[in-house]
């Protein structure tokens, strides 16, 4: 059963982190990737650029129109995700709580089931 673990980041919180904390996060993600690969539960992960670099393409009623900035006005943005294949939701939550972001006040990870997959030909 595939789950997407979405990492919600608050740029203001990230700025406040000490160098040690940032290093701990980096190492924590490294360990998390190694552990889930070892288990055969890892599928892929991506980290996203800063929300200020977002463009939104949406209809203005006549056709698509491009605007700057993120889709939602919010403090938190999706910063990246892990795609995992696990036995059940309980395991997905167990893994999600190992992600360093889950232990930092102001950040959060979200666990959602995947309902359709197509990996292309790769």
């Amino acid at each position: 059963m595939k789950y997407l673990i979405l990492m919600h980041v608050d740029p203001a919180v990230l700025e406040q982190l000490t160098e040690e904390q940032q290093q701990a996060i980096g190492e924590g993600h490294g360990q998390f990737m190694a552990a889930t690969k070892e288990n055969g539960e890892f599928i892929s992960t991506q980290a996203l650029g800063d929300p200020s670099r977002s463009k939104v393409v949406r209809s203005n009623g006549e056709g698509p129109e491009v605007t700057d900035g993120p889709f939602v006005e919010a403090k938190e943005f999706m910063g990246g995700f892990y795609l995992l294949d696990v036995e059940d939701e309980a395991r997905a939550i167990e893994l999600a709580s190992l992600i360093p972001d889950a232990s930092i006040p102001g950040l959060a990870v979200e666990v959602r089931p995947v309902v359709f997959s197509d990996l292309g030909d790769g």
């Binding site: 288990n39 055969g40 539960e41 892929s44």
Partner: peptide
């Protein structure tokens, strides 16, 4: 068959 990357399945079998 499972729509999973080959590496994921290979790792699972190895483990």
């Amino acid at each position: 068959a499972y729509q999973l990357p080959v590496a994921t399945i290979a790792q699972r079998i190895t483990r």
